[in-house]
Design a protein around this nucleic acid. Structure first.
Lengths: 241, 241
DNA sequence: ACAAAAGTGTTAGGCCTACACCCATGA
DNA sequence: TCATGGGTGTAGGCCTAACACTTTTGT
């Protein structure tokens, strides 16, 4: 963080923050990472103490190359989770005058998708907690709104991008993948049609992990085929659901 | 604009601007509205004098309710064009450290679509000029990049939204509409297929303006049917092209 | 033994694509 | 008269959507 002192401008300037909506998926439910406010040492952050909020914090004007760096840095500081600036997408800017009671603060909402299986251990359980998306409590500031907007972005992205790649664990089952799509799009699909379509795209490789394919109970495991996916994407395609 | 004076903060704050990408369509080509820099009276805006740029300017911390208000206000000031804050969409935040040589300036890129026929008269020709999208000169700051990103958003929006509604003049012909889609999506369509599909959606009403439908030369005129479109949208649909 | 989870294939209908000819106007 | 622009319909193929039964395991 920049040194505390006296910074003087000819015109008023707003403070700028980055907030992070981190989506994960545990094979059953869509999750979001939240932090409890008030644990920070910095005295300037005394608003909404004790409430749940999105991870995030102030742009360091001298050090953060872009606002995405702010998002990355603050996420790491507050939750222990490391996400590269380039892995964030923007969900929009929130700039209502009174959204922060202390001063005019404009926030740039970022979102990212992580494999919960990879990161759960990294997450600093002290301050941070994964919530079911459908059971998120009321949040500090206008973070409820930010969360809704980020989710809407996710819902739109899924038509164009392999959202599964980023959210599913390395190896997964078709029912899990279907459940993820259903969670995000808030609809139900026919099991057979979903399987047909997914297999048709040619982006799933069957994984033989030795567990007996005894009859039909316990699902076949798959892995994404990144090459085929990239191929498809280059030729311009759209996941139809 | 806020009064000039001394504004003191404990930590450095960036300046925040809104920039506007205004798309129009003249029935033949996609257009963008640009301003020539250096005409402003404000001394603080001395960078890139004489170059073309996107309209835009600084957030007025005390008066602008949201950053979209900044976009609306600055657009009006610089080009005479009046667009409501709610009619802007965001294309992203641009925050590279050196994107403005004067100080750290973060800009929120906004874009909007206008009926060129409606607004051409309003546009203040002194400072502002409509350019063919394909012939935009090199722009000040990182505005080239902002323009590309805004266009990419437009290209994506067109799959979900009646971009035509906003860009076409009240009454238009099918070839004009097709040309618009081709300009934005950068592809060519079969004339018959395009017409079939559009008519199928039921969002076009034929307009009988009295000009004789003599044989086939001079095209049939249409108008969008907003009710049918809203209906479709409510039920959730996707324009397939 | 019953409920829950998962695997599998076919058919009908709708949508997309490709394609050719005619007419009128303006040069 | 020739080039240009615009209007129009159909057939084949592909993709989508709808649909039922069997197996296994856990309770």
């Amino acid at each position: 963080m920049a040194k505390k002192g006296q910074y003087i401008y000819e015109y008023p300037h707003p403070a700028v923050t980055a907030d992070c909506v981190i989506f994960g998926y545990d094979g059953k439910r869509l999750k979001v990472l939240l932090v409890k406010r008030g644990q920070e040492k910095e005295a300037s952050k005394e608003a909404y103490v004790g409430e749940w909020a999105l991870p995030g914090g102030f742009l360091d004007v001298d050090r953060d190359k872009t606002i995405a760096y702010t998002a990355s840095r603050e996420l790491k500081e507050e939750t222990g989770l490391q996400i590269k600036p380039s892995e964030f997408k923007e969900a929009g800017t929130f700039s209502e005058k009174k959204r922060d009671p202390r001063e005019r603060v404009i926030t740039v909402a970022h979102y990212a998708l992580v494999k919960l299986s990879d990161v759960q251990a990294d997450t600093d359980a002290e301050n941070a907690e994964w919530f079911d998306f459908s059971e998120v409590p009321s949040l500090a500031f206008d973070h409820d709104k930010i969360l809704r907007v980020a989710f809407a972005h996710l819902k739109r992205d899924i038509h164009f991008e392999p959202v599964g790649f980023e959210l599913m664990s390395e190896v997964f089952t078709l029912p899990q993948l279907q459940n993820l799509y259903e969670s995000i799009l808030e609809v139900k699909f026919d099991r057979r049609n979903f399987a047909n379509k997914m297999k048709h795209y040619g982006i799933l490789d069957e994984v033989d992990d030795g567990t007996p394919r005894n009859g039909t109970r316990n699902p076949i495991k798959y892995r994404f085929n990144k090459e085929n996916y990239d191929d498809l994407k280059r030729r311009g395609f759209q996941l139809e659901f």
